[in-house]
Amino acid sequence: MTDRHPDDDRPDGRPRPRYGEYAPEGWVSPVAPPEAPEAAPAVAGRSDASADQAARRPQPAPGAWGAPPRPGAPVLSGGRRFDRVATFLLIGLGGYGVVSNVVLASTFASSLLSALGTAGYPVDVFTGQSDLQRAGAIIAVVSVAVFAVTLIWTIRRLRAFKISFWVPLSAGVIVSFLQMALVLAVLFGDAAFTQAILDGAGPSL
């Protein structure tokens, strides 16, 4: 006698089917866990869509407010910052000097002689007022021309991140030297004024 399994007591003699073995095609168990690989393409699709939206979103231009710095843009060190501050300060002083020379050009001779007379120099014997006034006009024109060239050159050096403070400094020294030389040439070119200084009519040093 053949031993039979308790599950083989069906009328047709076939073994009892396991869970879902004879289920219709396409039937999905309501308690079966979802398959992970099927959800992966959807996640990948959403990631691709997010990347496309980020790529289409307008990016701020380099150097704009809130934008990252331009690639390769030099970072200002302490020495560079000092150079820029000194450069702007010297440019401001030079501009003030130029404006003063232009404003005083029309009264240069009288203003200078008044200052010299207050200091005790014998300006009453000076006879070269016209030459001194002409010297004031020349100083004003030269100051404007030198300042314009200095400003252009300084801006170019600042944009190139080069040391620039010496440019307005040198221009100021040159203009001051030319101004002093021109004024002294006119003053001491007057024989009476020079003789009065030599005779001790001027202030004691």
Rank of each mutant, 00 (worst) to 15 (best):
D3A: 10
D3H: 14
P6K: 06
D7A: 11
D12K: 08
D12F: 07
R14L: 08
P17M: 08
E21G: 05
P24K: 06
E25A: 06
S29P: 01
S29M: 00
P30M: 02
A36M: 12
P37L: 15
P37R: 09
P37W: 13
E38F: 14
A39N: 02
V43Q: 11
A44V: 07
A44S: 14
A49H: 05
A51M: 09
D52M: 05
D52C: 00
A55M: 07
R56E: 08
R57I: 00
Q59S: 04
P60W: 04
P60E: 00
W65V: 10
A67Y: 01
P68D: 07
P68N: 09
P69T: 03
P71E: 09
G72S: 09
P74C: 04
V75I: 13
V75W: 09
V75C: 05
L76Y: 15
S77W: 06
G78V: 11
R81S: 12
R81M: 10
F82N: 11
F82H: 08
D83P: 08
V85Y: 10
A86Y: 02
F88N: 09
F88P: 02
L93M: 12
G94I: 05
G97V: 02
S100K: 13
S100N: 11
N101M: 13
N101Y: 13
V102L: 11
V103M: 15
L104K: 10
F108W: 13
F108D: 03
A109D: 12
S111V: 10
L112I: 07
L112Y: 12
L112F: 07
S114F: 04
G117E: 08
T118M: 08
P122M: 03
P122V: 00
P122H: 04
P122Q: 00
V123Q: 02
F126G: 06
S130C: 00
Q133P: 12
A135L: 08
A137P: 01
I138R: 13
I138W: 14
A140H: 02
V146P: 04
V146Y: 06
V146E: 14
F147D: 05
L151P: 01
L151K: 02
W153D: 10
A160C: 10
I163T: 14
S164D: 07
F165G: 01
W166M: 05
V167E: 04
V167D: 00
A171V: 04
G172I: 03
M180P: 02
V183E: 03
L184C: 08
L187H: 00
D190M: 12
A192F: 05
F193T: 09
T194A: 14
A196C: 01
G200A: 02
G202A: 00
P203C: 01
S204I: 06
S204K: 10
L205R: 06
L205Y: 03
